[in-house]
C-alpha cells in the first residue's frame, strides 16, 4: 500500500530549496513554496505536516519582512540599514515566531547550521519547539530522513 506523500511548506525568499528538494525528494514528499512570512501565515493551515524555513531572506523587499523595522532600528541606535540586515539574516526565526503566535504547532525545520551554536539553538528550541535544523551541507538523503522523522513517518 502506498503512503500519502508528506506535504511540506517551504518558506524561502528564493526557489532553491523547493526546486532542489522537489527534484531529489519527489515522490514521498510534496513541497509547496511560500515566498514570505505573510504568505506562510496565510497558507500553513492548508494541511501541511512540516514547515521548512530558510533563515536568511535578503532577496525580498523590506516591506515583505516580518518584524518591526522601526523598533529594530531603535535597538540599533537608529541605524535602519543594520536593522533591516538583522531582520533579513534572522527572518526564518521571525517567520516561525509569527507562525507560533498564530497557533501553528507544526514541526519546523530550519535550513541553517546551528551545530556550532549550541547555546543559541537551546534558546530557539525553548522558544519555538517542536523545531529542528539541517546543516548547510546536508544531502537530500539527510533532509528526507529529517522530514520523515518530524512528520512522524520515520
Amino acid at each position: 500500500m502506498t503512503r500519502d506523500p508528506i506535504r511540506v511548506l517551504v518558506v524561502e525568499d528564493g526557489e532553491e530549496y523547493t526546486r532542489t528538494l522537489g527534484r531529489f525528494l519527489a515522490g514521498p514528499f510534496v513541497f509547496t513554496r511560500a515566498g514570505s512570512g505573510s504568505e506562510a501565515l496565510a497558507r500553513w493551515r492548508e494541511g501541511f505536516e512540516v514547515v521548512v524555513l530558510d533563515m536568511r531572506f535578503d532577496r525580498v523587499p523590506a516591506e515583505a519582512l516580518l518584524g518591526d523595522l522601526d523598533a529594530m532600528a531603535g535597538r540599533f541606535s537608529g541605524d535602519r540599514a543594520r536593522a533591516r540586515t538583522f531582520l533579513e539574516e534572522n527572518q526564518g526565526a521571525f517567520v516561525l515566531a509569527a507562525l507560533r503566535a498564530d497557533g501553528c504547532r507544526l514541526p519546523a525545520v530550519f535550513s541553517h547550521d546551528f551545530s556550532a551554536q549550541p547555546r543559541r539553538w537551546a534558546h530557539l528550541e525553548r522558544l519555538h519547539a517542536p523545531v529542528d535544523f539541517l546543516a548547510d551541507n546536508a544531502t537530500p538523503g539527510q533532509v528526507s530522513a529529517c522530514l520523515e522523522r518530524l512528520a512522524g513517518r520515520g
Partner: peptide, 9 residues
C-alpha cells in the same frame, strides 16, 4: 540578554 525571537545572546 536573549533575543526572544532569534535566540541570539
Amino acid at each position: 540578554e536573549v533575543d526572544p525571537v532569534t535566540g541570539h545572546e
